[in-house]
């Protein structure tokens, strides 16, 4: 297994493992760990690190929506061109081209429903290639980034057993 193959799953599991702890878990030297991470970053494999936050527990509350977009393409405009344009908006948290009934799945975040709605109607819908938008407001998050948002994961094992 290459050092990349060892390090990447651990970073994806918890990006806050120290380099020392990554080294201890993988059997690599700390220097190798540092070099591998630098390489993953400079090659664009690792694009960033963020906390997974339970938004119900922070103020002020933020509104999130998942938006379906349908587009039409022409000779001059491809999916990448549309995506590039949409991704520039700071309100857009995530953007993916998907298979199925619509073309893009877009995550949008704002301070209120009206802010998100205005963004969609005033900034997104008028884009000439976009033929349809369907906005789904997110009401509750149960799992994100592989982390379940449930309370109490108590260890109910006997504290000492054979």
């Amino acid at each position: 297994m290459s050092s990349r193959e060892k390090i990447l799953p651990l970073l994806r599991e918890n990006a806050r493992y120290s380099n020392e702890d990554l080294a201890r878990q993988t059997g690599l030297d700390v220097e190798e760990v540092e070099a591998t991470i630098r390489e993953l970053e400079s090659d664009g494999v690792v694009r960033g690190y963020r906390a997974i936050v339970d938004r119900n527990q922070i103020e002020p509350e933020r509104v999130r929506a998942s938006v379906e977009l349908n587009v039409t393409l022409d000779r001059e405009t491809g999916y990448d061109d549309i995506a590039e344009r949409l991704a520039k908006f700071p309100e857009v948290e995530g953007l993916r081209l998907v298979s199925g009934d619509y073309d893009f799945a877009m995550d949008v975040e704002g301070d209120s429903m009206s802010e998100v709605s205005n963004f969609i109607s005033e900034q997104v819908a008028p884009v000439p290639e976009i033929t349809q938008t369907v906005t789904h407001y997110i009401m509750e998050t149960y799992k994100e980034g592989g982390v379940e948002f449930e309370d109490g994961d108590d260890d109910d094992r006997l504290s000492v057993s054979p």
Partner: peptide, 19 residues
């Protein structure tokens, strides 16, 4: 086991089963 049960803030590395 009994000693461990008396402690509040115990971290057990004494178990014989998966977590």
């Amino acid at each position: 086991f009994e000693l461990a049960e008396e402690q509040d803030d115990i971290i057990s590395l004494g178990v014989g089963e998966p977590d």
